[in-house]
Design a protein around this nucleic acid. Structure first.
Lengths: 241, 241
DNA sequence: GCTTGTGAAACGTTTCACAGCA
DNA sequence: TGCTGTGAAACGTTTCACAAGC
C-alpha cells in the first residue's frame, strides 16, 4: 500500500571510494525527486544546477541536497554546481534505473488499465510485459496502449515469470487477495512488488515491497487541513507495507 | 505527487488534556495504517487488540505503536489492549475523517476514471462530487460508478467549488499543467490537493498538498532490489511535493 | 500475567558553518 | 565571488525498560 511509514531502511551501497556506507532511507527517497527535477532542467537546456536551485521547488535546503548527493560520491564542482546530464546518469545508476526492468501487472481492472496506458513508466525504464487476471471474462482481452498485451490466466504466472525473466510485480487487486498473491509471486521468483491494495502485506527479507494506499494519502490531507496549517514542507506522501 | 520526502511536518493537535503538543510527522502517517488494520480487526469481530498485534503486520514494534497513539491521548487499557471500535472512532476523529469531505477530480483520463470507480474513497469519507477536464470532447460525458457525474468544463470550476463547498482537489493531469492548475484551484478556494502529476508543485502555506508519483515508487523498488536486500521494514512509500 | 504509558537513552537525520576549490 | 563537501551541533524519532493498572 501506499501509505506510510516507512523506514525504507537504506541498504548499504558503496560510494565512489568503494567504501560501503550507510545511506539514510529519506535520502534515497529524495534521489528520485532530484532525478525528476534534473530531467526538467535538462528539458530547459540547462547545463548545470546548484544545490540551491535543485532543492528549491522540492522545499529542501541546499545543504540537504548536497548531503544527500554526497552519500554517493562527489559529483559537483565548487563555484559551478552539478552538471545536469552527468547527474541524471549518476542517479539513474544509483537507483538502478540505468537499465530496463521487466514488470508484470496483476489485476486488469480500472487502475491496472490506467497504469498500463501511462507512458511514464517506460520513460523511467520500466516495461510492463504481461497482465494477469483471475476473471475468465477478461482473459485474452487486448490491453495496454496498443492493445498489444493479452490478459493471461493466473495459471500461466510461474511460466511467464520464468520465461520473460520478470522481476517486478505491480498489484492492482483487492485487499483480501493481496497477501496470497504476493506469496505466489514470490514463489514464482519475483524480486519486488508495488502494491496498490489497501492492506498491509509482508514479504520475505530477500524480496522488496513498496505499497501505495491512495486512501491513506487522502486521510493525510484531511489531517493536514483540519489539524494543521498544511505541510511545512512539500510532501511526497510515503506508503508502508 | 506521491513520491518523496516529506517532512509532513506535523501540525500541532491537542491531546486529551487540551495541551497543544508536537506530533511527529511519521506518527501521523502511521495513524492511517493503524486505522486500516483496526478496520480489519473489526471485520474479524475482534473486540480488543494489543499494541503488539496492531504493529505486527505493519512491521512496527509494540513500543512504536503505543508511543504513536499516546501522542493523542490515553486510549488503551493495561492488561487488555485497545478497544477496536473505540480506537477506530478516535483515529478517525484525529485524522478528521469522522465527517465526510467533498472532493473534485481534475483530469478525466484513465487514472481519473480508475479513481472514480474506486469505492474505497467513499468508505473512508471522501466523496468526489465533480469531474473537470479541458478536453471539449469529454465535456458532458457520464463518469463514475453510475455514470452519474458529468464531466464539466474548467470555466465552471470556481462556481462549482463555491456552490458545492469543495475542499479537496485530486489532480490526474500532465506535469506541465499541474502548477497552474493548483494555483487556479487555490484561487478558487480549495484547501488541499492530492496530485498524481509527476512533478513538484508548491502551494501557499494555508493550503495542504499530498503528492504521489507512481514512477518514483517503482524507482525506489528498483533501488531496493539492486542496492539492498529489500526494505528492512514494511514501507508505505512516501511522496513529496 | 499481560499490557499500557512514559521518561530516559540510543539512534538517526537535518542544519549549520566553514574550509577549500573553480 | 559562488558553490561544493563535510565535520560538528542541533534536532527529531525510535527503542528501551519499567512502574503502574487491569
Amino acid at each position: 500500500m501506499a501509505s506510510d511509514e516507512s523506514r525504507a531502511e537504506s541498504p548499504v551501497p558503496e560510494n565512489r571510494s568503494g567504501r560501503v556506507v550507510h545511506v539514510p532511507g529519506p535520502a534515497v527517497r529524495r534521489l528520485s525527486l532530484y532525478l525528476r527535477e534534473l530531467e526538467g532542467f535538462l528539458r530547459q537546456q540547462r547545463d548545470t544546477v546548484s544545490s540551491l536551485q535543485l532543492g528549491r521547488t522540492l522545499g529542501l535546503t541546499d545543504a540537504q541536497v548536497r548531503k544527500d548527493l554526497a552519500h554517493f560520491g562527489q559529483f559537483g564542482q565548487p563555484g559551478v554546481g552539478y552538471r545536469v546530464e552527468e547527474m541524471i546518469g549518476q542517479i539513474r545508476r544509483i537507483l538502478g534505473t540505468d537499465r530496463s526492468w521487466r514488470a508484470l501487472l496483476v489485476g486488469a481492472g480500472n487502475l491496472g488499465r490506467a497504469l498500463l496506458s501511462y507512458r511514464g513508466f517506460e520513460r523511467k525504464g520500466f516495461e510492463i510485459v504481461a497482465v494477469f487476471d483471475n476473471d475468465p471474462n477478461k482473459i485474452g482481452l487486448g490491453f495496454g496502449p496498443g492493445l498489444t498485451l493479452n490478459v493471461l490466466p493466473l495459471e500461466s504466472l510461474d511460466e511467464v515469470v520464468g520465461k520473460l525473466r520478470v522481476e517486478i510485480a505491480i498489484l492492482c487487486i483487492p485487499a483480501e487477495v493481496a497477501q496470497p498473491m504476493v506469496d505466489r509471486l514470490v514463489q514464482a521468483g519475483i524480486r519486488g512488488s508495488l502494491s496498490f491494495a489497501p492492506t498491509a502485506v509482508t514479504v520475505p527479507a530477500h524480496v522488496s515491497l513498496a505499497a501505495v494506499d491512495l486512501a491513506v494519502h487522502l486521510e493525510q490531507l484531511a489531517f493536514q487541513i483540519s489539524a494543521g496549517q498544511a505541510a511545512a514542507k512539500p510532501v511526497e506522501t510515503p506508503d508502508a507495507t
